[in-house]
Amino acid sequence: MVPDGVSELDVIGVRQGSFNIAGSGDTSGFGGLVSPIVMPGPSERPYGGWFDEVADEIELSLQARNLPAASVIEKVVVDRGEITFFVHRHHLVEFARVLRDEPGLRFEMCMGVNGVHYPEDAGRELHACYPFLSITHNRRIRVEVTAPDADPHIPSIVGVYPSNDWHERETWDFFGIVFDGHPSLTRIEMPDDWAGHPQRKDYPLGGIPVEYKGATIPAPDNRRAYN
């Protein structure tokens, strides 16, 4: 279900129907609509602006550490004025060290981890996005790391950026991504004995139907949705 000119990696799911209803509830005819959800694809050089400078610096620094850039960086996406480096998870810590220490890069601040769950993106269901900020050069980039549901392990960068401590705990709490090497990966937002990881797509919203006099309205995740 991949349209022309788009690589497999960028299709994260398929949208079926228009109103999130299965069965005979939808009589509009839009129920048979099936379309792939395509995220922005990898970009070709030159990326434009200072993106090329940063990408060159990164590649050179990785080479100096005997890491060929092609094996570390999966793809680079330049979209809407932001550059995202998709990095293989095994090399994440080294990559973070490069970002922090190289004088041409100097990304002093990591703005935390954001987990995103794409259940239909087989083999790459869990994404962890790390925004980085360089105060010296006044730049922002994003590093994205993927992990499959079957093996949700990503190395922890707390040793390089200690500020990620609580962010990684939160991502573990909400998505089940295990950050190897984290000093104390415990639940932080949910109660300590909570079962499940609430912000995954297979975890229900958990609301209750709203009672009125003579009627109920179903919880938000059971209502009609416009896709």
Binding site: E211, Y212, K213, G214, A215, T216
Partner: peptide, 9 residues
């Protein structure tokens, strides 16, 4: 119960 009551409906 609330469901059995009649409000504005």
């Amino acid at each position: 119960s609330i469901l059995d009551k009649e409000g504005l409906l």
